[in-house]
């Protein structure tokens, strides 16, 4: 394959995006455009950022944009990492006992559809306005679905793998570590990536309604100040950061957990 053909999707995608932004910029630039008030063009909302030296907020409360991005990302990654490990562990424990699976399955299926956003009021009451709240909300948004996925992946493991491992002398614990775990990891991780968007949204909502920092808080601040530049800036940063994280997860999926069972 030629490198040119390999790059084509990226070039076309990038060019299309660039022309959309350019059209937006031109339409928003023209004098007394109604569009500029609601959807300020990039030149307008980006200059706000430059003027304030990449800090957002009022006076002494202003925080660097990088710090907002970082705290949102840490919340999402923290919650997702804890949920991932916990879900694999729960799924594994449940798979050891059919009785336990029967007991807990209904609970999982009842809790899984509750949107993480619905946990926000409870979480704020229990944990207060803190990072724990945000991490908890991400956790609730991902944990149940991943536990269900882990159980499904364990059921999907070809029996021959376990028979072969046992036949070659592997004890139950070793079979779990050397066969079950690697066999389920790719599938569960793919679902984690799919659910990243949900986790990302949950944190943003939590930041908008409760926590006072992070990317969601920028949007809320813009709303309170009737500052559409700030709103647009927040949206652009959220979109780009989310895109980059998804790419990162995809890279982990294709480079580290690449095999298919």
């Amino acid at each position: 394959m030629t490198p040119g053909r390999h790059a084509a999707p990226y070039l076309v995608g990038g060019a299309f995006l660039a022309s959309l932004v350019a059209a937006w910029e031109i339409a928003g630039r023209s004098a007394d455009s109604a569009l500029a008030a609601v959807l300020p063009p990039p030149s307008q909302f980006l200059s706000v950022l430059l003027d304030s030296g990449f800090r957002i907020g009022l006076g002494s409360q202003a925080v660097p944009l990088a710090q907002s991005i970082l705290s949102t990302l840490l919340r999402v990654f923290g919650g997702m990492a804890i949920a991932f490990v916990a879900a694999v562990a729960t799924g594994a424990l449940l798979s050891l006992s059919r009785f336990a699976t029967w007991c807990f399955s209904p609970l999982l299926y009842i809790l899984a559809p509750i949107a993480p956003i619905a946990w926000i009021p409870t979480a704020i009451v229990v944990f207060g306005i803190s990072n724990v709240t945000a991490v908890f909300i991400v956790f609730m948004g991902v944990y149940f679905i991943l536990t269900i996925a882990t159980l499904a992946e364990i059921r999907r493991i070809p029996e021959e793998y376990l028979t072969v491992a046992a036949n070659l002398g592997a004890r139950p614990g070793e079979r779990w570590l050397r066969v079950v775990l690697p066999a389920i990891l790719p599938g569960v991780f793919t679902l984690l990536r799919t659910n990243f968007i949900a986790a990302w949204m949950a944190v943003l909502v939590a930041e908008m309604v409760g926590l006072r920092d992070g990317l969601g808080a920028i949007i809320m601040m813009g709303r309170n100040l009737f500052n559409s530049d700030l709103i647009m800036l927040g949206m652009a940063v959220i979109g780009i950061a989310g895109f980059l994280v998804d790419r990162l997860l995809m890279l982990i999926g294709t480079r580290l957990i690449w095999w298919r069972v």
Binding site: T163, V179, R260
Partner: peptide, 24 residues
Amino acid sequence: MIFQEHNLFPWLSVRGNVGFGLRH
């Protein structure tokens, strides 16, 4: 026993697969 299908673990290299039972 060598089965017809699902013979090798896809996450292990040939050396990893062949050496799977070696520790026992």
